[in-house]
Design a binder for these strands. Structure first.
Lengths: 233, 233
DNA sequence: CGGCGCCTCGCCAGATCTGGGGAGTTGGAA
DNA sequence: TTCCAACTCCCCAGATCTGGCGAGGCGCCG
């Protein structure tokens, strides 16, 4: 563990994660181990030991949107055994049989991880064995897996291009208040009232914030302020 | 560690976290240890060993919005030493001196944790000592602290009333597209055009999404959709 | 001391959004 | 099969937001 974490912290390119995860798979003697982002906007990243054919098929078929592992983890915080997810829908069962046909193990354990700006990733271990064996494996290694998930995500966030620099001009205190109140549903009039200023002054803040954030309208400005973590809602 | 985690997993009431965190403070022989949600909508929860006077003052003064620990962690994924945060603003320095006056240690280490629906919490250790001592303490215990943060949050999420029943009604695909495009600055007309539907139909989606999200207006709906991770921008 | 950023205020017209009606098709779930 | 959620379309009036004009005071920094 110590070695792996140190390697993750030292890593300078995303590609290194691939060899680390392969090493981990062998170390824990499981069929597969996978780390991947989940995002709908297209910026995919993942590393792991799944058959590339399966990965391609998975993405191609849009399984991301029906996979109970993804959907289930998205609403949970704790690691989850695949057996405990909801496989009742037809699409989910079709996905499962397709997965089995591509050599994915019958057992799985996935850990959801979340970063800033709504970033979401999964760290998954999969294997073929009976329930008892799997239960003892996950109970024994759960903490290791949580930490690995954490460090994989940390490294991926650090190395992901476009995540780091972004000068992100800060907002003035009044602008922050304005954006925050707008984000919680206040109208301009209500915000102005809450801040005890004229509505016109408020508009100046909104426009100023919009300019700083490079936003096209108020909604855009609020969205950007949130995405950049400038306001806490 | 094993005992504590087992206690956290067994806990049936939020109050138990308080005694656990006190035990941990003594175990690690630090001045203070704190776990708390961060949200502006009022649903506060926290447990820890800070002087209640300081906690009350912190909330009362709205320090949540200017605390570099909160703001800094909100934009990060990894644990962070307080020294590495941006204390340059006047408000931040005022907060720090106020904290010191209330007996908060000069050293601190905070771990951001994120759960479903944009939930955000902090797990913090604070102490009074020199930089070297603190550095070795954090390096030695970082992994423990990450795991503790994780299990504290897991327990808090499990026990928090109102977190469980509300499965956060999902948005339909069209609603997601609508919210996403609005979040990137499109006007209603532009969104309708992009989606090749009438502007009226678009309005139906916006209103429907607003209803599902319990939002008061479009900006609020977009903000909530983002906060709950329903859209990725 | 002269900028520069922040905070504050006013007016107006046109663009945009919101709220309240009603209505038909389709595909998947019970 | 029946039902429901999702998707699509239309009108109108009033509320709200946006864009563009201008103006003054305060505090900080070089």
């Amino acid at each position: 563990m110590d070695d792996v974490i140190a390697r993750l912290e030292r890593a300078e390119r995303l590609e290194e994660l691939q060899s680390i995860i392969e090493w981990l798979r062998d170390h824990y003697a499981v069929d597969d181990m996978v780390y991947h982002w989940v995002s709908s906007n297209g910026t995919q990243y993942g590393c792991g030991t799944y058959d590339p054919k399966w990965v391609a098929r998975y993405l191609d078929q849009g399984y991301l949107r029906i996979d109970p592992v993804v959907l289930g983890c998205y609403q949970r915080f704790h690691p989850v055994d695949w057996k405990r997810l909801d496989w009742s829908s037809k699409a989910a069962r079709a996905l499962m049989s397709d997965a089995v046909a591509h050599g994915i193990g019958n057992q799985g354990y996935s850990i959801p991880i979340r970063g800033p700006n709504g970033q979401f990733a999964l760290f998954t271990v999969s294997h073929t064995c009976d329930d008892e064996t799997w239960k003892s494996f996950t109970e024994l290694n759960r903490r290791d897996l949580i930490l690995l998930a954490h460090y994989f995500n940390q490294t991926a966030l650090r190395l992901e291009p476009g995540r780091t620099p972004e000068p992100t001009q800060a907002l003035s205190p009044r602008e922050v208040e304005t954006m925050t109140l707008l984000a919680v549903g206040y109208s301009r009039a209500q915000v102005a009232d809450t801040l005890s200023i004229s509505e016109h002054t408020l508009r100046v803040y909104i426009e100023s914030a919009r300019f700083k954030l490079g936003a096209l309208n108020t909604t855009h400005a609020v969205a950007r302020a949130m995405a950049r973590g400038l306001i806490v809602v």
